[in-house]
């Protein structure tokens, strides 16, 4: 192996990966990088609270070993907006009360961000009737695509309302006919 220290690019900044191969991407973000916006809800890929974007795709950071992310670009909730400069998605979550306790929320938002990208790229879901056509962002599609993120407070209806709001103002997602 080379002598240079392995890094991953987290929110635009190169960060040295941990030395213990057991450390998950989630624990590395939370403990070593103090990026505690990414939450640990189950640690076994069963709740989605730990969702982050790796190379633009959403994954469960709890089930990935940090050392497997050399050179990867990682985006966490901290890169999406700040309390005094919320992204459109974050604003919509606040307006529609798309959360209660807030613990699943960063995961929901990261997941939603990537989900919209998947929609824009025309990815199908289990709700998509014709796999050869670009899917429309119907409520059923959105619910299926967000089902990897549990919310025990039961804010689901409000989360979908927030997503519909953002999608309605995003031309690239209206182009489902393309």
């Amino acid at each position: 192996m080379g002598s240079s220290i392995a890094v991953a690019i987290v929110n635009g900044v190169p960060k040295p990966l941990p030395s213990d191969p057991r450390r998950t991407l989630l624990d590395w973000l939370r403990e070593d990088l103090a990026l505690t916006g990414t939450k640990k809800g189950c640690d076994h890929g069963q709740c989605g609270a730990c969702t982050v974007l790796v190379e633009g795709r959403r994954i469960n950071s709890c089930l990935s070993l940090a050392q497997l992310h050399e050179s990867d670009t990682i985006e966490t909730i901290e890169s999406i907006g700040s309390a005094d400069n919320l992204s459109a998605l974050q604003k919509a979550f606040v307006t529609h009360d798309g959360f209660q306790c807030g613990y699943c929320t960063p995961g929901q938002i990261c997941s939603a961000k990537a989900m919209m990208q998947e929609l824009a790229e025309g990815w199908a879901s289990a709700q998509t009737q014709d796999l050869t056509e670009r899917p429309l962002p119907t409520p059923e599609e959105l619910r299926e695509r967000m089902s990897g993120n549990l919310c025990r407070c039961g804010a689901y209806s409000n989360i979908i309302a927030a997503l519909e709001d953002v999608i309605a103002s995003d031309a690239s997602l209206q182009g489902a006919q393309a």
Binding site: G37, I80, A83, D97, F99, T105
Partner: peptide, 9 residues
């Protein structure tokens, strides 16, 4: 507290 919750802070 919404802005804090949606930003993970």
């Amino acid at each position: 507290e919404g802005p804090l919750k949606v930003t993970g802070t």
